[in-house]
């Protein structure tokens, strides 16, 4: 459904490399997650796919149409939800939606079935101005507006950034609902824990696509041995562990410190425990664990 070949894009006359030779294929009907921190290049890639920005190099197609040559065709095919809330705050829910429908030469009535799963949740408040809505309702309105012309592809740029965990969960439930209607959905996020809601993900950092696979495929490809380590003093634990030969990385992960060790380093759990005892740590727990997406991201960043 989407192909990206050798796409590069720079800003400020080449000083800032936003995208560096990106290759990607997204299948029809897929829920694809583009995962990376602020500044990774996610928005640039979205703007290129949405035909709002021309790449310096490479080609990209959406549903067979070229993003530069056939931009008009693509604009009818896609629904794009930019990172910033971009609806009219002085118009009501209904007026915003009518406006977006009119721009695409259609009406709400004609497309009601498509938008219903989302729109029905805010319809009781349809005469409220968009500027006065809660974050969750704004999101639902923006999504309804992106859907009102029955696109084949949804491009959602960081819809959950700055959103609390409950609203994020609800948003992903909505996306999975929409995916069932046959839509292809590309969504970007800085939250690594959202990866598991996607069919496949791309991990992107500093303009480079570090890995593209299923979430399972990415975590099972993690090479080092990984341990969750605890003691009574987390700050001291991390400081001490970083001094130990054989440890590649040591970072806090909630209640634990995740410690990665190259498989051939010879360092194991008993040796680590002996070291920590010598450093006067109490309540030491060391458990071998499987890597999460965030562990993989950290490993790929190094």
């Amino acid at each position: 459904m989407i192909t990206v070949q050798n796409i590069s894009k720079t800003y400020n006359k080449g000083a800032v490399k936003a995208l560096d030779n990106i290759n990607l294929e997204i299948q029809r009907g897929e829920l694809f997650g583009l995962i990376g921190p602020d500044g990774a290049g996610k928005t640039t890639l979205f703007r290129i796919l949405a035909t709002l920005l021309v790449p310096d190099q490479g080609t990209a197609t959406v549903n067979g149409a070229d993003v530069v040559r056939d931009y008009k065709a693509i604009r009818r095919t896609i629904g794009y939800m930019p990172g910033r809330f971009s609806l009219y705050p002085d118009l009501t829910i209904l007026e915003n939606l009518e406006f977006y429908a009119a721009v695409f030469g259609t009406t709400i009535a004609e497309n009601y079935a498509q938008i219903k799963p989302i729109y029905s949740q805010i319809e009781p408040f349809k005469h409220r101005r968009a500027g006065q809505l809660s974050g969750g309702m704004k999101q639902k309105l923006a999504l309804s507006c992106a859907l009102v012309h029955q696109p084949d592809v949804l491009l959602l740029d960081e819809p959950t950034t700055g959103v609390d965990p409950v609203s994020r969960q609800e948003f992903w439930d909505m996306l999975q609902l929409l995916q069932k209607t046959g839509l292809t959905i590309v969504v970007s996020t800085p939250y690594m824990d959202e990866a598991d809601r996607c069919d496949r993900i791309g991990l992107i950092q500093k303009g480079k696509m570090m890995s593209v696979n299923t979430p399972q495929g990415i975590t099972s490809g993690y090479q080092p041995d990984l341990y969750a380590v605890r003691s009574s003093n987390m700050y001291q634990l991390i400081t001490d562990l970083r001094q130990l030969d054989g440890i590649s990385t040591c970072y806090a992960f909630g209640e634990d410190a995740h410690v990665s060790v190259a498989s051939n380093s010879g360092l194991n759990a008993p040796a680590m425990e002996a070291f920590l005892k010598q450093k006067a740590h109490n309540n030491i727990q060391i458990t071998p664990i499987a890597a999460s997406i965030e562990d993989c991201f950290i490993e790929l960043m190094r």
Partner: peptide, 19 residues
Amino acid sequence: EPTGGVDPITRRQFWEMIY
């Protein structure tokens, strides 16, 4: 919300500064 959108390593370095 000091760490919203910050990459996983820098986010942790930030918390180490807090500590």
